[in-house]
Every structure is written in structure tokens, then in C-alpha cells.
Amino acid sequence: MRKNVMNPDAQARHELTRTVLDRLEATPDPRLREVMSSLVRHLHAFAVDVGLREEEWLAGIVFLTETGRTCTPTRQEFILLSDTLGLSSLVDDLGHPATDGATESTILGPFYVPGAPFRESGASIAAAGLDGEPLLVTGEVATTAGRPIAGAVVDVWQTAPNGLYDVQDDGQPEFHLRGRFRTDDAGRYDFRTVRPVSYPIPADGPVGRLLAATGRHPWRAAHIHLIVSAPGHHTLTTTIFDAEDPYIDSDAVFGVKRSRRHVFRRSPDGGLHLEEHIRLRPETPDSTT
């Protein structure tokens, strides 16, 4: 019976991969050793699988170099690349599985700015006279057991009706459409804003060119970001998506989860209203808080 014999070229590639992996065995940190070994195995297998050409490998190096050069204090092109490849959402799923009735998390995105001002309950995060459809957001922060959490911090941010965040637009004041709110003794919070709009992610850099080359659009479904935190509970990063947005099923960064789609209801005063209940997981499973 004839044995399967690896051809000389394949044998050499296998030996190269094995040599690299053997060198990594000296890595003192076991987790770093595990991650780097897996990375090498998959990278080498990818190159073999597609028959990676030298000019293609070099084009990839140039692309990554341009991605780094595009990063600024207010724009993280590598996060954008991770987002558009679905990697950010995958890592989020791995790190924050939906369990025990807790509100599902979503990706942070590249435009979060820490230190937004605390605002009074019911205050608007939008500048006076801003165009856009008025929206009232109310809700409750509670444990997965349904117990209200007083003093929880609800940190919110979104784009303006022109599709830009304040850090992208010199015409917007600092911390425009951003704010932090504390829940009352009943765990309630409320704030006023304008209906979010869909907007394109920055497409004038290498990530935008990659999207165009692969026949994809750069649009994100309309949304409002939230980070909700409270002592004794896991901090939640999540998003409210407009279920009626035209890009809800083709969000450019794969960030829409079905449980995070919301329908904005028409209120008696003609504006829109959303009631959003947040459930936080306790830091310890047996917590009764």
C-alpha cells in the first residue's frame, strides 16, 4: 500500500512553521505563548491556503503601515479595521456572553470620550436649537433579579444630525451630545436628545479603501451609545439601535444585536420616546444586590 508522502516544498513549509513554534516555547508567560503560537499556526496556514504572493504580502504591509499613520488622538484606524472585519464584535461576544438576563453588550466604537459632564435628570445632551427630531429616553437600571440600582452612572454619546461626533466636527462644542446621568433611588434615569441618524464611518483612509475594494458600504445604523456602571456590578457597554434604520441589517461594523434594536414611539407632544431598561450582572454570582 502506497504511503502518503509530503512533497519537498510542503515538508519545508511544515518544518519552518515547526521551527518558529519551537522557538516560542521559551516564552515565559504561558498566555502569551499560547496566543503567539496559535497566531503563527493560523498565519502560516493562511499564507499556504491562499498561496500568498510576495507582492500581496508587501501590499498588506503597506496597508497596515498606512493604517497606523492614519491614527490620531481622535481617530483610531486600527479599531476601525477590527470593527469592519467583525473582530471587535467577536471579541465582545467572547468576553461578555449574554447570560442570566443581563442586557447584551456591544462594541465601544472609536469615538468614546471619557469625562463627559454630569447632567441633571431630564436634561438635554443636545445644544439648543439643534436640528433633529426630539427624543426623550427614559428607563431603569436594575440587577438581573430586577432590583433597582440607585446611583448607577449612565454615560451616553451619539452623533449630531449631520452624522458627525463632536470630536470630528469643529462646529460642535466640546461634549456635545454627550453626558452622564445618575439613577435616582428607584433606579430611574431620563435625558433628552435628538433621534440618532445613520452615518458613514470614516472612509477616506485605508479602511475605507478596503471596504470599497470588497464591494461594501461604510454606513452604520443609527444608534446611541451607553456605558452603565454601578458598584458591585459589571460595567456594561451597549448601544440603542433604531430598528427602523435602513442599515439595521447591514451595519458596516457588524455591531447590531437583535436584542438591541428599539422602536422609538411617538409621544403625545409629537416627539419620540424610548423606554430602555438596563440589567447589570453582579460581580459575584451569589450577590443579592
Rank of each mutant, 00 (worst) to 15 (best):
T65E: 15
R119F: 03
I227P: 03
D49F: 09
R258P: 10
S124N: 00
G163T: 03
I240R: 01
S267C: 10
N4E: 13
Q76H: 15
P97R: 10
I240H: 01
G255L: 04
A98S: 14
I79N: 14
F175A: 05
D286Y: 08
S267Y: 05
I278C: 01
S259T: 14
Q168V: 02
A145K: 11
G270R: 00
D83L: 12
P30R: 06
L272S: 00
T238R: 02
A145F: 07
G68P: 06
R41D: 02
A150N: 07
G271L: 00
L164W: 03
V263K: 04
N162Q: 07
I61T: 14
L226C: 04
V167Y: 00
T235A: 13
S82Q: 15
P206Q: 14
Q76R: 15
D83I: 06
L32K: 14
T159D: 11
S38W: 13
R53E: 15
S82A: 15
R33V: 02
L80R: 10
H262Y: 13
D93Y: 08
P8F: 01
P28Q: 10
G232V: 03
T65F: 11
H277E: 13
T103L: 01
L43K: 09
P110M: 10
Q158R: 10
A127Q: 12
R260G: 02
P114Y: 08
V153N: 04
G51S: 06
S124M: 00
A98Y: 07
S89K: 05
V5Y: 03
A116W: 05
P117R: 05
G146S: 06
R260I: 02
G232R: 06
G271R: 00
T138W: 02
P97Q: 10
H176F: 03
T284L: 07
R41V: 02
T70N: 13
T289G: 10
V253H: 02
A145E: 14
D131T: 05
R2M: 08
R192E: 02
N7I: 05
H233V: 03
V253G: 04
G68H: 14
D185I: 08
I278N: 01
H217N: 09
S89A: 14
D9S: 14
L80C: 11
S198G: 15
V20A: 09
M1W: 09
V228G: 00
I227M: 13
A145H: 12
D249C: 10
R18A: 12
R209F: 07
A203T: 15
G151N: 08
L80N: 11
T65R: 14
R266C: 06
H14E: 14
T183F: 02
R33S: 05
L226F: 03
M1K: 11
S229N: 08
S82K: 14
G101K: 04
E34S: 13
V207K: 05
E56S: 14
T159W: 06
H234C: 11
T143A: 11
W157I: 04
S82N: 15
P134G: 02
G115C: 07
R2V: 08
G95Y: 11
V156F: 03
A59M: 09
Q76S: 15
F63Q: 11
D131W: 01
K257D: 06
G51L: 01
L164F: 04
R180T: 04
E25C: 06
P285C: 07
P218I: 08
F175I: 07
L90V: 12
A212D: 12
P114W: 08
H42A: 12
D131S: 09
I61Y: 13
R260K: 10
H14T: 12
Y165D: 03
A160S: 08
D155R: 01
R178K: 13
F254E: 11
